[in-house]
């Protein structure tokens, strides 16, 4: 049971040759609830993508449940809520269908949905308060409602290790409370949760550990911080020149942004 769900050793990621994450060690034990925080562009999304295998590491190793990521196949234990829904596709898809795709990790090829699958999908829809919108097209929902669909999709898979990238951005307070209850329930069943957020809001009560990123490194790792502490100048990337006048800051983060829409994106 107590196999470490997530272990990153000396992780580094470069995008298009430019180092984005450097020297990151992160070990998350079973049942932990970690808040990953930091300024815009500090590398939170990149870190989560590296941990889920979407972004290759340039050095270091990720182990999920004690298995090197490259040999990891037990994906039904992992859930992922991306920062935003990808571009709309060319064919309509209903809310129910998108949430049901979160159940794929647990389905075998060419088998119909089992009763357990259906009830997991229904429960996930109820948690995000979209049970009555199941038949509607996702593209007809508001941004916050779409975000809730993505959360339900991850919950439907009943993961043991759940990554959420700003799940509450654009979600109203009642629904944040509902999400808090759902994540609390998941956590009480022993799930491990890594959550990216700028403002924890009602989720703050669940968080047991905070990791703050700054400019691609871990700047703080320890007890949860109050929202205002995260914006401490030590962690903030912007406004650096107000606090440092030693010229060091001038070298900071002004490399030209070299990316065409199709380059480095995958």
């Amino acid at each position: 049971m107590s196999v470490t769900p997530l272990h990153l050793t000396d992780g580094a990621v470069a995008i298009g040759g430019r180092p984005v994450l450097r020297g990151i060690d992160l070990r998350v034990e079973s049942g932990e609830f970690v808040a990953l925080m930091g300024a815009n562009g500090s590398g939170k999304t990149t870190l989560v993508r590296a941990l889920t295998g979407l972004r290759p590491l340039t050095s270091g190793t990720v182990e999920l449940f004690g298995t090197d990521l490259r040999h990891f196949h037990d994906w039904q234990r992992v859930g992922y809520v991306p920062q935003r829904l990808g571009a709309a596709t060319g064919v309509p898809a209903s809310v129910w269908e998108v949430v049901a795709s979160g159940r794929l990790t647990r389905r075998r090829l060419l088998r119909p949905l089992s009763r357990a699958d259906r009830s997991a999908i229904q429960d996930a829809l109820e948690v995000v308060d979209l049970a009555d919108r199941g038949r509607d097209g996702v593209s007809q929902l508001s941004g916050g409602q779409q975000q809730r669909v993505l959360i339900a999709r991850a919950l439907a898979g009943e993961p043991e290790l759940l990554f959420l990238d700003e799940p509450t951005a654009g979600v109203d307070l009642p629904n944040q409370l509902a999400l808090t209850a759902a994540l609390g329930e998941l956590a009480s069943r022993g799930a491990t949760i890594v959550l990216v957020a700028h403002e924890l809001g009602p989720l703050a009560g669940l968080v047991g550990r905070a990791v703050v990123m700054r400019d691609g490194r871990v700047a703080y790792d320890g007890a949860p911080l109050a929202d205002h502490q995260v914006h401490d100048p030590r962690f903030a990337e912007t406004h650096l020149h107000h606090h440092h006048t030693d010229g060091h800051a001038l070298r900071h983060d002004h490399s030209p942004h070299v990316a065409s829409p199709l380059e480095g994106g995958r």
Binding site: T52, G53, L54, H73, D74, W75, Q76, V78, G79, Y80, P82, L85, G86, T89, A93, E97, V98, A100, S101, G102, L104, T105, R107, L109, L110, R153, G157
Partner: peptide
Amino acid sequence: VGLAPQLFAVAQDEEFARVAGL
């Protein structure tokens, strides 16, 4: 038709499908 759930998921959200192990 038979692989519709998988093919749908891959076309709908490639990254999510990858994390789902497809």
